[in-house]
């Protein structure tokens, strides 16, 4: 079963910005799926639409075969979201935040209390359970958001830049924790622009790039060679769904890298539209 299926997802903001112009994406159940790309690529918009925080312009999204338009409650109940920005009430105690979040998913307070204890202990926040959220450090706040996203035991955990502003030690322990819950069966989708750790964790590593034109500084940082250098051992196949308007050399260089291109591996999907380019590499 597919944990997530997106067909031709489009988002045009009121100011006329086309954030997404027809994204197609599929994530298998149990996958650890990393979505990479620079700021403005549309990663957070995509996640916002999946989780119900952003209205889509058009397109279809299914979470474990449940259409978010036809049965939003069921689809939402499958998802746990860790957004990029801290979005809890800063004036509530840590434990209360988790219990309330469980309540929004229909879980009674006794069960919620037990689960809150479990996740706060796992994420080393139990000692802070009575502390107001605003008094936590950045790393603790990030872990609180992960605990909150897991409190209703979602089948699909989505993390938007989960390691932003977190020191390397906590980042390492967070990756270990995520890897563990993934092994226990939770499908994970994350976005990040840190490349090193997703590479270690993720089985599927798509790349979401926006560029207009490709030689902008943001895009330069994500040139094929800088991204794929550490991944030389991986074979890829490239499918260009639309002809690129940009100099062919970008993709020519990618295709002439020393790694082997085989049909055994999956898809590299390169899409472009007038103002942006989305490139999704899967392997």
């Amino acid at each position: 079963m597919k944990a997530l299926k997106i067909n031709n997802l489009k988002k045009c903001y009121k100011n006329g910005t086309d954030a997404l112009k027809g994204v197609d994406l599929e994530v298998d159940e149990g996958d650890f799926f990393a979505l990479l790309g620079p700021n403005g690529a549309g990663k957070s918009t995509t996640i916002g639409i999946i989780s119900g925080l952003v209205n889509k312009t058009s397109g279809k999204i299914q979470i474990f075969d449940q259409d978010i338009d036809l049965d939003p409650a069921t689809a939402k109940s499958y998802i746990g979201l860790v957004p990029q920005e801290f979005n809890f009430n800063q004036f509530e105690p840590v434990q209360e935040i988790l219990i309330n979040q469980a309540g929004y998913y229909g879980i009674d307070r006794a069960t919620a209390s037990q689960r809150a204890e479990t996740y706060l202990r796992q994420l080393e926040l139990w000692d802070k359970r009575h502390v107001m959220a605003r008094q936590l450090s950045g790393g603790m706040k990030r872990r609180l958001m992960i605990a909150r996203a897991l409190i209703h035991q979602p089948r699909l955990l989505i993390l938007d830049e989960p390691t932003a502003g977190v020191d390397i030690e906590i980042r390492r322990s967070m990756w270990d924790f995520l890897r563990t819950i993934n092994q226990q069966g939770t499908t994970i989708i994350l976005t990040t622009h840190y490349l090193e750790k997703p590479r270690a964790c993720a089985r599927t590593l798509p790349l979401l790039i926006t560029a207009s034109p490709l030689n902008t500084p943001a895009c330069a940082n994500y040139s094929p060679s800088s991204i794929w250098k550490p991944l030389c051992s991986i074979s890829i196949t490239i499918i260009i769904t639309y002809p690129s308007p940009f100099p062919a050399v970008n993709y020519a260089s990618l295709m002439t890298r020393p790694w082997k291109l085989t049909s055994k591996t999956q898809t590299v999907l390169i899409r472009y539209s007038k103002h942006y380019l989305i490139t999704i590499f899967r392997f």
Binding site: G52, L53, P72, A73, L81, F88, G106, R148
Partner: peptide, 18 residues
Amino acid sequence: YSAKFQKSIEELLVSPTP
């Protein structure tokens, strides 16, 4: 408004609560 300002309203919006 405070929930909007702090974005904690998103806790409810992502949930299945009608």
